[in-house]
């Protein structure tokens, strides 16, 4: 079962890369933007048929390695 995890920076954490991307987009003519935040996306193929168990495993991965909970939040999405 494929499970995806999206890692995003918490609201109070400065995201200089997001800022630069915002500026670049602005310079390209995409002026209708209030903010850009950059994050990470993981697609993990777990050898597990029970969606709840598969999600629980990925949640543990996020807590232990994929995300740093001091600065990041994670969201788990079941893809198939």
């Amino acid at each position: 079962m494929k499970v995806s995890a999206i890692i995003t920076l918490k609201k109070d954490v400065l995201d200089p890369q997001g800022k630069v991307i915002h500026q670049a987009l602005d310079g390209m003519g995409f002026e209708n933007i209030s903010e850009v935040r950059q994050g990470k996306y993981f697609e993990i193929d777990v050898n597990e048929n029970d969606p709840n168990k598969a999600k629980a495993v990925v949640e543990e991965m996020c807590k232990k390695l994929l995300a740093n909970l001091v600065i990041e939040n994670f969201k788990i999405i079941e893809t198939q």
Partner: peptide, 16 residues
């Protein structure tokens, strides 16, 4: 910081 032995994290430098 990643082991948690000292608190906090180290982010990308402010001016990239």
């Amino acid at each position: 910081v990643e082991t948690g032995l000292v608190p906090g994290v180290l982010l990308r430098n402010k001016y990239l």
